[in-house]
Amino acid sequence: MSKQSAASCKNNGGFTILELMVVSILMTIVVLITAQFWRWFSPNVSFMIARGHILREARVAMENLAADFGSAVGASSVSGSGLLICKDSGDYPNGIADWTAPDVMVDYSIVNNTLQRNDLSTGSVFTIADCISNITVEQVSPTLLSITLEFAQGGADREIVFLWSSL
């Protein structure tokens, strides 16, 4: 067998143990680096996604509350964890919270971590937003009402406080 054919036979025989070991070590290093990176990257991305979701839900809740508070002439706490809004209505809104028709009463409460809006005049119930862990309504002073919405999901949380004055 000539030198050339011997070299050819040696080369066609596959990888040597040394080559396999080098490749294995390199692959192990790459996998370990990727795993470490993924361990750091994955929870952060999940946290950011949760924050984005909370932000979206909070925005929707905020806009709905603002829409109802636009014509509100009265608001009160319902056992500390519910909100009752009296909206001025009728042909000639008198600017006074009558708490009866023609004024429209709207109730906000938490059901299964969702914020639900109940129009007591029509009986319609809508789910406004989710990821809400708690709502606290506190009468700070005779004319000032504080509404605290707490959002939580996937390790992220956010608290928004609304202050409404009846004056």
Partner: peptide, 16 residues
């Protein structure tokens, strides 16, 4: 912000 001051419409038309 985390705190908002909600100001209702004072104008009757806007409320209606």
């Amino acid at each position: 912000a985390s705190t908002y001051y909600v100001v209702s419409q004072s104008n009757r038309w806007m409320r209606q």
